[in-house]
Computed example of a mutant assay.
Amino acid sequence: MKLKSWEGMLAFLFLLTLVANAMLAPEFLTLQNQINLFQLSIEKIIIALVMALVIINAEIDLSVSSVLGLAACVFGYLVHIGVAAPLAILAALAVGPVAGLINAVLIARVGIPSLVVTLAMLIGFRGVARILVKDQSMGDFPQWVTDLGQKGFLGPIPLSLWLFVIFAVGLGVLLHRTGFGRQVVVIGTNAEVARFSGLDVARVKTTLFLMASSMAALGGVLYAARLGSVRGDAGVGFELDIITMVLLGGVSIFGGKGSMAGVILSILIILNLRNGMALTNITGHIQTGVIGILLIVSVLGPNLWERLRRG
């Protein structure tokens, strides 16, 4: 990682955030707070890892938060009507590939822009979730389910955090060290050139949308386990945080550029900012405003930084 790169700038901002939080909130550095810092946003950050690949491929998936909510509601509804929890988990996870296939067919095969398709699916999947659970809050999950979402696994660290580390490493290797990752970047740079070069553009895009929705469905199961109950509005607005994490990490909104290291640093910055603001009693509305500002910075920042560096 070059110090003059955007990733180097993010590393500096991350250290600055750590120092500021430690000075303003003494409890910030405790082990439990560090675990909570990740656990409270775990669904967003695992989805952001895959979203990075989607945006590098010059696409976007706005429906991930609704897929998360639908998967959580499918799990909650099935448990509520008496289906065994393991079967309910499998059914909730199956929501991901089905949703991803719908997106992929319309985008990669029919040719409708991903912004239009996934915005429509955001509304559609959310509607199905509300039909399932209506205005109820469905809970009473088996104890082992909530334990997986709330308690430590192989030590004090919860299962979801272990999954994040595994996915971060695995997707980093996939993006930067495999032929598929190179295809993702090449297609994101210029899909027509990639197609004329013999790359199966539709197959790559289909794979990415299946990955994104499958990760969102897993996020829905983790969300239900962490909270111990689900509602029809599960995951509403998560897409804002997810896209901000990706773009702030240096991934170009136009595709063809980005690194997993930058995305991980961006995730760490945003999680620590939110945690620091919460510890200093800054309200949720202000936190959302700060994330909105970060979204603007994430679009303009990398390009401005590159111009300044060259200058």
Rank of each mutant, 00 (worst) to 15 (best):
T118D: 05
D147Y: 07
N21P: 03
N190P: 13
D241G: 11
N272L: 09
P97I: 03
G111R: 09
V299Y: 04
G262F: 11
I291E: 08
G198T: 10
Q34N: 14
Q39H: 07
I242C: 00
M215N: 02
I267G: 03
L265G: 04
V246W: 02
I112F: 10
M277I: 11
S298G: 15
I42C: 02
G249T: 04
L159S: 05
D147C: 02
G100I: 07
S229K: 04
P302R: 01
A92T: 04
F38H: 05
S214C: 11
S197K: 06
D61P: 10
A88P: 14
W162G: 04
R109A: 07
A71G: 09
G170S: 14
S114I: 08
D233L: 02
I166H: 05
I267R: 03
L248K: 00
Q34R: 12
V221L: 10
F141H: 07
L210Q: 05
V64T: 13
G111C: 12
I286M: 13
L68A: 04
D200G: 00
V299H: 01
N33L: 07
G69I: 06
V50L: 05
A108D: 13
G82Y: 11
T30C: 07
A91F: 12
A168Q: 08
R126K: 11
Q287N: 08
F196L: 15
A191Y: 06
I267S: 05
F238R: 03
T283R: 08
V201L: 05
L15M: 12
G250T: 01
V128K: 00
D241W: 04
G262D: 12
G262I: 09
N57W: 06
F141P: 04
Y223E: 13
A22H: 03
I286F: 15
S213T: 02
V145L: 15
V230W: 00
Q150I: 08
N272G: 09
H285T: 14
R130L: 15
I269D: 00
A261L: 15
V173C: 06
A261R: 10
Y77R: 01
V128D: 01
L175Q: 08
E43H: 12
A91H: 08
L132Y: 00
G8F: 05
V204N: 07
